[in-house]
Amino acid sequence: MIAIVDYGVGNLRSVAKALERVGAEVRVTSDADEISSADGVVLPGVGAFGKCMDNLRAAGLEDCVRSVAGSDTPFFGICVGMQILFDESEEFGPVKGLGILPGKVKRFARRTPDMKIPHMGWNQLQISERGRAPQLRGIPDGAFVYFVHSYYVDADASDLAASTTNYGRSFISSVWSDNIFATQFHPEKSQKLGLKLLANFAVMAGEPVP
């Protein structure tokens, strides 16, 4: 069973439906025991970084998320759910994140008048040279995925990058570190390739994906 952490932010329905579509058993939950005992954990997140952190604490789930991320359980962060894994964000801040991964979250600078913020729409993944994360199996270099965000992860240790993407600069579009995988883009909104990525994750969580 894959647990989707419900801490009062955003639309968890799309993530749940996408995982169910690929054949996974899913539970949307805010119960720490259920999350801790799940075979895989998804941490979604939309809106402001600080608000996501506040909500996570208010739900009493900060320690739970921290311990799952530090265990062997396959863990998948999405969008702001990826950002809060890092040290801090400058969004309405600096605001402290979970600090599980080293790096800071910064606002895109507008390089040209044509560069709009948020970075919204379909952009391409450059798969990192360090070796392909198992979650990215079957995802070709240059694949298009759906982004919507104004802040990006500027990782101190950019060797965590599973992929990078260009928007005025190169930024980390997915990270991979042991059991943790997280994407700045939305796999649940990225049509076939997004579902493929979620299926890969579900397989790692031991789900009987066809």
Partner: peptide
């Protein structure tokens, strides 16, 4: 739609209150 189509979805028309926004997002609008 959100159960079958995994792409970004915008919904408009007659959105008047924060509750309207919340209900649409909860239903699966992005």
């Amino acid at each position: 739609t959100a159960e079958q189509v995994f792409m970004p979805l915008t919904v408009g028309g007659g959105v008047r209150t924060e509750d309207d926004v919340r209900e649409l997002l909860k239903a699966g609008a992005d």
